[in-house]
């Protein structure tokens, strides 16, 4: 990989300052970024490690009953400590990558990258979570803007994500057999004011909400309510591991399974 300076700030303020360097890049757990750097597909001047900032670590409940997770919190921590508060989210985190990846990979890193096959975007979008940065709060519906594209500005750092805790939720991941990312992942979350369904892995446009399913499930929260519903295959990803038609089919199957498991 190309060489770079390594910065390890201990406060958000210092991190923001370090990120103001030209071509500085934030480093979460690095589980996607480091392989990318190895291929010389990125050439940051400075890598700003965010894992040494105590205020970006850990999970807690806020007064509004939201589960708040620091941006630099690892998947393993969410899996272990989130279970008591938001079991479906913790279960999702416990199946990202593999154990070693979960010990390093972070929530903020996953969201900032917004890989179209990553699991977290589905959870954040289905939960209607709020992405908190050093500068502002961004609603999940505004945050995801297509494959590898987000609402983050240059140098902006995800410090925390606030998840409203649903009445019931479940995430169904159908793994791509090589990468073990989601070939299709569906996160269903049932709130008092309606059901949200977010799909990852499937669409050319990255994570998306399946609004027809949400409507059907909001009036009848049962797998049967999804009968006859399907997503448009023409917008689905087609690759070695699945045709667009197959992914569209899996979206239906995984959504039904998620509802049944709620």
């Amino acid at each position: 990989m190309y060489n770079f300076d390594f910065a390890k700030p201990s406060t958000i303020a210092d991190a923001v300052k370090a990120m103001s360097e030209e071509d500085a890049q934030a480093l979460g757990g690095g589980q996607t970024l480091i392989p990318t750097l190895k291929q010389r597909l990125a050439a940051p001047s400075t890598l700003v490690s965010l894992t040494g900032i105590p205020e970006m670590q850990g999970i807690c409940m806020d007064d509004a009953g939201r589960l708040c997770i620091g941006g630099a919190t690892t998947h393993a921590t969410v899996a272990a400590e989130g279970a008591a508060h938001y079991p479906a989210l913790a279960a999702m985190a416990s199946h990202i990558g593999d154990p070693a990846v979960r010990n390093r990979g972070t929530l903020g890193g996953s969201l900032a990258n917004n890989d179209p096959s990553a699991c977290y975007p589905a959870a954040v979008l289905a939960s209607g979570a709020t992405v908190v940065t050093n500068a502002r709060e961004i609603a999940a519906d505004d945050y995801f803007q297509g494959m590898f594209t987000t609402a983050l500005d240059e140098g902006e750092i995800i410090t925390e994500v606030k998840f409203p805790v649903p009445e019931a939720a479940n995430y169904q991941k159908f793994v791509q057999p090589a990468s073990r990312f989601a070939l299709v992942g569906v996160f269903v979350a049932k709130y008092a004011d309606g059901v949200r369904v977010a799909v990852t892995g499937a669409s050319e446009d990255g994570v998306f909400r399946w609004s027809e399913a949400e409507e059907a499930l909001s009036s009848d929260f049962s797998a049967g309510a999804l009968d006859g519903l399907s997503v448009d295959a023409s917008t689905m990803i087609g690759d070695l591991h699945g045709t667009p038609e197959y992914r569209a089919h899996l979206v239906s199957v995984m959504t039904r399974r998620a509802v049944a498991a709620c």
């Binding site: 057999p177 090589a178 990468s179 070695l240 591991h241």
Partner: peptide, 22 residues
């Protein structure tokens, strides 16, 4: 699981453990 797949231009599309399923 396994398959070395070339596209019509001769690019190996399953050229890493991200695409080649071990």
């Amino acid at each position: 699981l396994e398959s070395a797949v070339y596209d019509k231009n001769g690019q190996l599309t399953s050229g890493s453990f991200m695409e080649y399923a071990m």
